[in-house]
Each structure stands twice: as C-alpha cells, then as structure tokens.
Amino acid sequence: MDVSSQTPTADVDVDELKNPKNDEGSTKPKRRRETSDIWMYFKKIKGIDGLDKAECKGCKKQYQCGTKQHGTSTLWRHQKTCSKLKFHDVGQMILDQDGKMRSKKIDQKIARELLACAIIRHDLSFSFVEYDGIRAWMKYINPDVPCISRNTLVCDIKRIYLREKKKLKHVLPTI
C-alpha cells in the first residue's frame, strides 16, 4: 500500500475545512432546514429587532424562534389553542357514502357495547374476541381500536345485563 496516497496534500486549505462554503459561495454556516410539522401553521420572518420570529398564519401573533432557548414548543402550544387556525388531520378523515369527508373517530364505549351485544345475540363464546382472525380483522378495519380480552368482554356483558335488569324492574310494576 502506498503511504503517500494516505497523507493529505499541502493544497488543502485549512480554513476551508473549518468553514466550508455553502451553495452561494459565502463562508457563512449553512442554515438548518426546518423539519418540524409546526411550520405548516407558522411562517418565519425577521422581527423589528432583527431576531428570527415565527408568525402564526391564523392570528398573526409572533413568537421568537430559531435559537436553542426558543424552539418550537411555544409554537406547538399556541397551535393547540389558536382559534383562527383552521386545520384538519386528513389522516383521520374518510369519505362517507355521499362522498363527503367525515371523521373516522370511533367511540370506544359504543364499539365495546356493540361487540358485547353481538356476542350476546349470536351466543358466541367469550374467547371469540381473542381469535387471531378476529383480531387481525379488527386491526385491518381500524388500527386505532384496541383489541379487548375475554375478561373485559365479560365485564361489558355483565354491565349490559345489570342495565337491562334495571329496565325490566321498572317496566314490570307498570304491567
């Protein structure tokens, strides 16, 4: 192996290694690209005092940003409370039969109640909810829905039983 090919040559500028030139040819350090999703709701501007600021696209309120002390946490907190920002998480939307967008959020209580009623109506075993095929189907339909155990199902069925028993007690004296 040739040792001369491993040693650096004298033509290399040490200052160039310390401060590489960016695309425009200047030796200023490159500015980091904003990677946070918060920049969909804010735009970067220069403030009157010359500091970097972030301006809300909804209410035009300005926040200091761009340093280690002023990150994106304040922007995230503002985004949650800003009443003028209109945004929809398209990942949580689906098309209904009419072709309109609607939320696909599922109420877990209603989903569990419907599952328990189906188990009762069709006289299925409690372990039905633990079948691999049923769990795979539920995850395919909606990955956000947690699969319940047979013990949870038993509690849900007991709750339905007690509720229906209470209704029946109210109805029987009137007959």
Rank of each mutant, 00 (worst) to 15 (best):
L75R: 04
I94A: 06
K57Y: 00
W137T: 11
R163Y: 12
T152A: 13
Y161A: 10
E55S: 01
Y161V: 02
I120W: 06
R150I: 02
D89A: 12
M101R: 09
T72V: 15
H170T: 10
K80I: 08
R77Y: 07
K68Y: 10
S73K: 12
M101C: 07
L51N: 12
W137V: 08
H78K: 07
A116H: 00
I119E: 00
Y140V: 07
V129Y: 04
I148D: 05
S103W: 02
I106G: 00
I141G: 00
I106C: 05
T81S: 14
I141W: 07
A116F: 03
T152W: 06
L51Q: 12
R159P: 04
C147E: 03
Q108R: 10
Q92K: 15
G71W: 03
R77C: 08
G58F: 00
R159D: 15
D98K: 05
L115V: 05
R159M: 09
E113P: 02
Q92Y: 04
D52F: 05
K61T: 14
E55C: 11
D49T: 01
V129L: 01
R135Y: 01
R135F: 01
T67R: 06
Q69K: 12
L168Y: 13
H88I: 06
A111R: 06
K84D: 14
I157E: 03
V90N: 09
K139V: 01
M93N: 06
S125E: 11
S83F: 06
E113Y: 06
D144E: 15
N151H: 09
L115Q: 07
K167V: 00
K60S: 15
Q97E: 12
S73R: 09
L162W: 11
D52T: 13
H70F: 13
L95A: 02
E164N: 12
I141K: 13
I110M: 14
K57C: 08
